[in-house]
Design a protein around this nucleic acid. Sequence first.
DNA 1: TAGATTGTTAATCGATTAACAATC
DNA 2: TAGATTGTTAATCGATTAACAATC
Lengths: 210, 210
Amino acid sequence: MKELTSVSVPTVRRLPLYMAILKEIEPTTQYVSSTLISDRLNLEQIQVRKDLAGIGVTGQPAVGFNVRELIEAIEQLLGWDNMRDAILVGTGNLGQALLGYDGFARYGLNIIAAFDSNPEIIGMKIHGKPVFDIEVLSSLTERMHIQIGILAVPSKVAQQVADALIEAGIHAIWNFTPVKLNVNNNIIVEQVDLAASLAVLSSKLKAVNK
Amino acid sequence: MKELTSVSVPTVRRLPLYMAILKEIEPTTQYVSSTLISDRLNLEQIQVRKDLAGIGVTGQPAVGFNVRELIEAIEQLLGWDNMRDAILVGTGNLGQALLGYDGFARYGLNIIAAFDSNPEIIGMKIHGKPVFDIEVLSSLTERMHIQIGILAVPSKVAQQVADALIEAGIHAIWNFTPVKLNVNNNIIVEQVDLAASLAVLSSKLKAVNK
DNA sequence: TAGATTGTTAATCGATTAACAATC
DNA sequence: TAGATTGTTAATCGATTAACAATC
């Protein structure tokens, strides 16, 4: 029942792209070919096929893959079938943007509360989510068995807040700060690295402008 | 003088990490070893060394690399030595967050204006940046020879706005929408793929929870 | 039967890592 | 001289791509 071989990170990163297409065609289509998916995404057909094989679904030769089955397999693998609660720390511009982003629900992510140290914001609601004092982070997070913490605080306090999150029992940190966090390797850290992304864009632009 | 061999994308993505360390130690240190950098970032020493060799700097055996020289080489390669102007389209939560993020200056990126279609916002300033009507995007962008467009609009209009940006002479799009854009291959698109990032986090968390 | 598409095995490619001589 | 660290060449590893038989 469970996947024994784990799926590679590059494959996992492509799954949401597949999902978007699958969701779009699901109402009207029962079977989909790897060619159709690859065409829409400008990928190699064989790559899509390999990815789908990797997540454990089998298709029918000359027919394709069952759309519903694919959706369920991906949702299952990513845990998007069950809503997972998360908390967010830091309600600056970026934090507020994340609180207001309604797309996360599609990915099974539910931000239940935010934390900040600014007394002017504590007690308020941002996009419907309550903002608590960072001092009570530990008690609330532990009580509710929250596993995911979203880190959107200033760089200076990133490590310190990360430590507090881990202390409070968080298992995974989605890190929106540019700080390389120092954590035990039983803690999952996924970094949204804007600097890296901008670096790629900049270097390509530089290359073109020569 | 110019690099003939291009640097790989994985290497480019690590350069900002190196830069952060270099900037930090620059005031006090003249030479830095690949070991010091790799230790701080939990990377392999040889990987850092290869990366640095790749950007065209040479170190001194038994001494290390000249910090200043490294900084200049990276800045040069990424074009972070010259401020590059950019415009941002879409002033929703995410757009506002990006407008307010003062860290971009460190990467030589200067957002000079924002565009939106909402008449209530047009004419206002957000974090000191003027918001213009998306209708005048083309004229302003062309006149100022802006090369970079930051896309932070709703998914529904992402492709359409991207087309308008390209029409206006933009060369590179930093795409914060989850939409896979369809563009000519002379246009650089760099996607900040939150869904991919969340997918990696989710799948790892799922694996741990079993 | 012919055509489309999958599954599987092998080849290729590029990035990472290892090994070691050269140098300060 | 000994130790640290680089530069370079080779080995390894994993992801992507190719090839082709099997199947609907």
